[in-house]
Design a protein around this nucleic acid. Sequence first.
DNA 1: CTTACCTTC
DNA 2: TCTAGAAGGTAAG
Length: 521
Amino acid sequence: MTLEGCQIQDPQLSGWLLDPIDPATCFQDLLNKHCRNPRTTPALESKKVSQIITGLYSLYKLNRELCSKLQSQGLWSLYVDMELKMIPVLASMEVGHINVDKEALRRTSDLLGTKMKQLEQEAHKAAGQMFLLTSSTQLRTVLFEKLRLHEQCENKKLPKTINKQQSTSEAALLQLQDLHPLPKIILEYRQIHKIKSTFVDGILSCMMTKNYISSTWHQTSVVTGRISASHPNFQALPRQPLQVTRKLFISGKEDAVVTVHPRAMFIPKEGWTFLSADFCQVELRLLAHLSSDPELLRIFTNPEADVFCMLASQWKGVSKTEVSSEDREHAKRIVYSVVYGAGPERLSGILGVSTEQARRFQDSFLQTYMEVQNFIQKTVADCHKKGYVLSIMGRRRTLHNINSPDWGARMQAERQAVNFVVQGSAADLCKMAMIRIFNLLSTSNSLSARLIAQLHDELLYEVQDSQVEQFAAVVKSTMESLERIDQLNIHLKVPLKVAVSSGKSWGSMSELIVPQSLPSF
DNA sequence: CTTACCTTC
DNA sequence: TCTAGAAGGTAAG
């Protein structure tokens, strides 16, 4: 039997769709939750034939109960046409290998190890004593009891921990960095330590004797419908490379600067190329559609325009061509923070201005995009009335605290409701794209591409060198065509834009110009 | 602001 | 001595 021929049922998926916040993990939990007379299932070793039959009958009843609930809540199509069809897609992704340059990974591990030893020595020298750099408790003693740095900055407000102690968080160290060399050393040490432990040694430990990894993909672990990955979490590998200065103990030589890029360790097999297809600003486009905000819609009518670049150039007062990638990322963070309900306190941290200025910024943003504000208010009001919200394809999230007397809990539920509608809708679109491309590949005689990973709005494939151009066209047009899904009565008010890039490692992808034409087979 | 996973203490 | 959870990091939007 082929993977694409699967026609199965999955009570775990049903249970998750009905209540994604509490994905009853095992058979027994599902029985308890959804069946009137749940039978306890005995331990495996003591099972008699009759008990197995009883268990199977319970399973049959459970599935029937779940299916009927799905139908009554309008979740049937999402279950059958999306989630069940994702099973073979995820299975094929999980079965496949992702080749890793293990030797390069080992070399970087050593490099970062020596760099950390150097930083440790510098830190001990700066502190005038030995201490464990990874221990926030010991660092607190050095910074505030020995060096008493907090006494030199009474005009600044240093962050405190939950227990009213001096914090050693990044924000605190940034405040202290001009007073003493130690904070800067700690900041660099932490950055390198993080990369080494999680993204270099962590990846190595996922490989054991192999020289490839294959993540585990989880379908029911994210409430909004996104998928997640573990061992390793492929979706969290750093996007930006890290610069490490390496001291050379050769007289007359400058220190060498080495760039460490975990993504560059992932390489396609011989004769193949990585191809990535990215839905551009997908949540913001969906927000434009869902809110019908004329100003936001107008921005997206120009297919070449990059909203975040535009806003960054506007806010920072530089020309659009001179917007750095950091500026763009910054603008992106600001936009999503505001639309998902960040308070002036948090926003001021992101913007780097006072809370009063942050509040003014928030007001003027929401005034500019009036219908976005309207959409937020309508979504919240609707959720208060019904107790749940829906995504574009009918995915559902019940917000148990939406009418809570606890102000904090209620506000959080309101933000979660708004976030769900947009993030959930984006997840719907991305999954639909994965399924359509999977089906296309399954029936194609000429294409042999394989899905490597999904990074929420981005699909990463491994493609035979000779098929890159053809596959790029297929992927781009398939993804962009989701602007209209007649069967589901979805007609987006904004065009979808997909950027395609390719490369011989995941760390060195460059944009691919795909001619606008219908794919031909 | 939201959604995850991973590491350290 | 062991472990659950908090804090702080990464990603995605």
